[in-house]
């Protein structure tokens, strides 16, 4: 069997100096290449903390996160940023596009921010990506002129433009109506099938969670259940 794309080993995350609260109390989790998994749990259970740690936006108090075969605990801030840029894609609840930029510029951002200089190929790739989410006619629009569903599609294009092996989605449909939620879900499903991208999706929505291949439930900072359908 191939190495897992993500391996979380005994991750503990504590906050506070005097009064220590444990957000994660020793989480073990593995995701294989191409999995499509939902991460569920009540609010305050530690889902977001886990997602931040997997997304290399936060570091565990103890334990290890091995991403694409690399142990990330020894990377410094700079290396972590570069590694994050090439290995991970992010989809946030509130799309989090940059309002001052056009759709295509937003999609170019991950590569542009990482490499420093915009190239012709970057733009071409970003435009192709927008096309594959069905927004080629909106490329030059300011993101504030797009609908909620369109904005989230741009965000998905941004997350996938560098073909990262793992995409982390934090309530990607949390802010959308049923139709748009459906569209976004299908889009992620399609990229999962076509590109083999692994998805880890934090969601409250049981309809979304039920349609994922695997459901991991976190309660009180521990993995409570983990089924594969």
């Amino acid at each position: 069997m191939a190495d897992p794309i993500l391996s979380v080993q005994q991750v503990i995350r504590e906050y506070g100096d005097r009064v220590r609260t444990r957000a994660l109390a020793g989480v073990d989790l593995m995701l294989d290449q191409g999995e499509f998994a939902a991460l569920i749990g009540p609010s305050g259970s530690g889902k977001s903390t886990l997602l931040n740690i997997v997304g290399l936006l936060d570091r565990p108090t103890s334990g290890r996160v091995i991403l694409a075969g690399l142990d990330t605990s020894n990377l410094d801030e700079r290396a972590l940023t570069a590694f994050r840029a090439r290995t991970l894609g992010f989809v946030f609840q509130f799309h989090h596009l940059l309002p001052a930029f056009t759709a295509v510029e937003n999609v170019m951002l991950p590569e542009w921010a990482d490499r420093g200089i915009a190239t012709r190929e970057m733009r071409v790739r970003a435009e192709a990506m927008l096309q594959s989410v069905g927004l080629s006619d909106r490329a030059q629009f300011k993101t504030t002129d797009l609908s909620g569903g369109q904005q989230q599609r741009v965000a998905i294009a941004r997350a996938l433009v560098r073909r990262p092996p793992l995409v982390l989605a934090d309530e990607p449909t949390g802010n959308l109506d049923t139709n748009s939620s459906e569209e976004i879900f299908e889009l992620m499903r399609r990229f999962n099938r076509e590109l083999g991208t692994t998805f880890l999706i934090v969601t409250h929505d049981p309809r979304i969670a039920d349609r994922c291949d695997r459901t991991i439930e976190i309660v009180d900072g521990l993995v409570k259940s983990d089924h594969v359908r």
Binding site: G55, T81, F92, P110, A113
Partner: peptide, 16 residues
Amino acid sequence: SREIGILRAVGAPANR
């Protein structure tokens, strides 16, 4: 600050 956080998350190094 949120936009800066996003820039950092999607890959902008601190020095940029």
